[in-house]
């Protein structure tokens, strides 16, 4: 094992080294982000084969164009933007209408209407095994509309700021905010079906 892989992950240094032609540094960046990029690509394309293509194209493009990375945004935000573009291109190729975008207007606010309102038990996730919980969380994200899915994933799971999420997805800040709110409310409702306090009924709160 090399010294650098034992030390903590230092993105700025690795990016500088990679830009200076250090391929090992670039490979380390790839290994750090590959699983997140693969997850994002799977969420957008809904197809494992496409997601693998997107994964490869993203890092090959990032390698080719590393000199264009300005360094005034996070490296992760930059590669997410590449990955999102690659994933959308895949979708466009698969569909005939050619109008795939993450910026489609979908709704008039109707989907912020909450139907299921019930308090959760204490530590509701403890009722499930790690594996079951992972499946519940995954399936719930999968059931969101694609534009909500990527916003939620970047903002709340990957912990990007609202501004970084907007930059990575090519959306405006207000668009990110309204999608995030709807994604959060929809997920809350989906999880309520699993996590609500036993014996509680919806009508008790209405």
């Amino acid at each position: 094992m090399t010294a650098s892989s034992q030390a903590g992950f230092d993105e700025t240094t690795l990016v500088t080294q990679a830009r200076g032609g250090d391929n090992r540094a670039f490979a380390e960046l790839v290994k750090h982000y590959e699983a997140k990029i693969f997850r994002l690509a799977q969420h957008i394309t809904q197809n494992r084969e496409d997601a693998e293509d997107v994964l490869q194209e993203t890092f090959l493009k990032a390698y080719e164009h590393l000199d264009q990375f300005q360094g005034n945004s996070k490296f992760y935000t930059w590669i997410v933007r590449i990955a999102v573009n690659q994933a959308l291109m895949k979708l466009r190729r698969r569909r005939t209408d050619k109008s795939v975008s993450l910026d489609e207007t979908i709704d008039t606010g109707e989907d912020t209407v909450t139907r299921e309102v019930a308090a959760w038990g204490e530590d509701p996730e403890q009722q499930f095994t790690r594996e079951e919980l992972g499946q519940i969380l995954d399936a719930s994200i999968q059931s969101l509309a694609p534009t909500y899915r990527s916003v939620f994933l970047l903002r709340d799971v990957d912990d990007l700021s609202t501004e970084e999420t907007a930059e990575a997805l090519g959306l405006s800040v207000p668009a990110v905010k309204s999608r995030l709110l709807r994604a959060r409310l929809q997920l809350r409702e989906k999880l309520t079906r699993y996590f609500k306090r036993k014996g509680d009924d919806t009508f008790a709160y209405l």
Partner: peptide
């Protein structure tokens, strides 16, 4: 309830 369970939803997903 909505605020409380939405907060918990975000916490569960954070850092997954």
């Amino acid at each position: 309830v909505i605020a409380d369970t939405t907060r918990k939803t975000i916490q569960i997903y954070k850092g997954m």
